[in-house]
């Protein structure tokens, strides 16, 4: 189980996160918030990319707050696919294997789940937006992470394509069977992918029963 306790982060005098706590079991939890609400900062703190001013990140009751990202084995799928342009799609997906993360089996499974077999020899720039996002997720999945963190991985994609890819993402994420944090500003997107929901607003997180409640909470409180 992943647990974030009392995470606080201030940027230029503005408290972006105020004592935020969140628990994620082996489920897909959507963290929904408008732009600038601090959801990406929270995710980056969990990943170890950003250091919190206060609070702890725990995994299986072990404190990982002080650990750098390379020692956490948390998969990260950023907003833009952030593919390594000098490598082929296959080498991108296999990247974690260089550091002893994942296996041939996890590679084969991710490629199959995300329908990337025909794209392996291509360079990332030759891929469509949808396949770039798939590659980005596959790269994280292959390394068999203990947690998967997704920061609006389909932002900028048109609705029709999102509707096609999101269910595929859900299947791939469920197959990983680890805690997943899916950050988004779109409650509809969250509805398709997530099992449970939380909303972040004014630096505070509130857990809700479904995406509809999350959407209402976001719109009424704005």
């Amino acid at each position: 189980m992943l647990k974030a306790e009392n995470i606080t982060k201030t940027y230029n005098g503005r408290k972006v996160l105020n004592e935020v706590s969140l628990e994620i079991r082996s489920e897909i939890k959507a963290l929904i918030g408008v732009n600038g609400s601090g959801k990406s900062t929270f995710l980056k703190i969990v990943a170890g990319i950003v250091v919190p001013d206060k609070g702890r990140v725990l995994f299986s009751d072990g404190d990982v707050t002080e650990k750098p990202p390379e020692q956490r084995n948390f998969g990260y799928v950023p907003q833009h696919p952030a593919l390594f342009q000098h490598l082929t799609v296959e080498d991108n997906i296999r990247y974690g294997l260089r550091n002893g993360r994942g296996s041939e089996e996890s590679f084969r499974k991710a490629v199959e789940l995300l329908d990337l077999k025909e794209e392996l020899k291509k360079k990332p720039r030759e891929l469509s937006g949808g396949y770039q996002s798939r590659t980005s997720l596959a790269r994280a999945l292959v390394s068999q992470p203990r947690v998967i963190l997704l920061d609006e991985p389909l932002s900028g994609m048109d609705v029709a394509l999102k509707d096609k890819i999101l269910p595929e993402f859900r299947i791939a994420l469920k197959a990983a069977d680890v805690p997943v944090l899916f950050v988004t500003h779109d409650a509809g997107e969250a509805e398709i992918v997530a099992d449970s929901f939380a909303v972040i607003k004014d630096g505070v997180v509130r857990e809700l029963d479904n995406s509809e409640e999350a959407f209402k909470f976001m719109s009424t409180s704005n």
Partner: peptide, 24 residues
């Protein structure tokens, strides 16, 4: 973000620099 991703995949800062940043 490519550096962040490389680090979550197990690279330390020097490895990410030589394997990802410089080649790009």
């Amino acid at each position: 973000e490519v550096i962040d991703v490389a680090r979550t995949l197990g690279d330390n800062s020097a490895q990410a620099y030589f394997r990802v940043v410089l080649p790009m």
